[in-house]
Design a protein around this nucleic acid. Structure first.
Lengths: 157, 157
DNA sequence: CCTTTCTCGACTATTTTGGTCGGGAAACTT
DNA sequence: AAGTTTCCCGACCAAAATAGTCGAGAAAGG
């Protein structure tokens, strides 16, 4: 029903937030939780898991927190979601893509369609880097400024 | 996590089964349940709902059952899933596609990606007719026959 | 009127999701 | 060394969604 779970979205937003601070030292769970509107205690769990992905690392103590170990343009949304949905972390996707989930051993009239769908989804995820998302954010803000001008506010040159 | 729910898959398979018998009068729930490996009592519920979609109709009594009211090449997978996921039947899809599900009012760095994904999925669903699936089934059987030949069985000419 | 099949609403069970909690362990400060 | 501050870990819990069941009734036809 849902494109993805809240947990996956939290994972993505957390990494997105880390990317904003990329190269500036660790970011605390509490800060990520605040700016991305994620329950802090739950985020702990998620980031803990994400350490297994090789995308993030952490440090304890006063100046501790989480940080990325690749640059934002070398991390794709697909990297994140593939890890979050890997068999060790959760169940394989439903539908006859895999033999196990098909009453006809994955050899049914629908399996080709399910595969197409899964491929189409991951084609987008794999083509979207965290840097792309940062750029979207930037554009979004610029666009909003433009709108505000039209609505009558003056801009200092 | 899952591409779609079991219920949606059951709905699709049920209509697929009806399509096989298209034009040959009604098919009983019990038969669909058997050939498509769906719990009969649950299928009752699903087909009951599907009547609201304008795709199927039913008849009671000994010669009763369900039947399609459009031809299989005029029904797409999209028609079925869009109906099954319509607000009256279930919740709107998660992720920032709609304002309601986004902590930042649908105006976030991710919304564009979520929309792309949703569109990509439905592009496939809408392009796949039930007739297409019937054709896949046919090809699948032919292919299997071919394989059986290769494995040593003789074919009568 | 008898059988068969759909019909309807309520009801239940199971799984997944979305979280919480308490206490411990590293890191840095003073 | 003591004290903060942060991550770390495993268990635990609650709510929602999903998957499925049940009993009684109502049309259709023989």
């Amino acid at each position: 029903m849902a494109i993805t779970s809240k947990k996956n979205q939290y994972a993505l937003r957390a990494i997105f937030e880390l990317a904003k601070h990329s190269g500036k030292g660790p970011t605390k769970i509490s800060e990520i939780a605040r700016t991305q509107a994620i329950p802090a205690r739950f985020l702990e769990v998620i980031l803990g898991q994400l350490k297994g992905s090789g995308l993030v690392e952490s440090k304890r103590g006063f100046y501790g927190g989480y940080y990325l170990i690749r640059s934002p343009d070398e991390i794709t949304v697909g990297d994140i979601f593939r890890f979050m949905e890997s068999p060790s972390n959760g169940a394989e996707c439903l539908a006859c893509v895999s033999k196990a989930n098909c009453p006809f051993d994955g050899n049914c009239a629908f399996s080709s369609m399910w595969r197409q769908v899964k491929d189409a989804i991951y084609q987008i995820y794999d083509a979207t880097t965290i840097q792309d998302l940062l750029n979207h954010e930037k554009q979004r803000i610029t666009a909003r400024t433009g709108v505000q001008n039209l609505s009558g506010e003056a801009t200092r040159i």
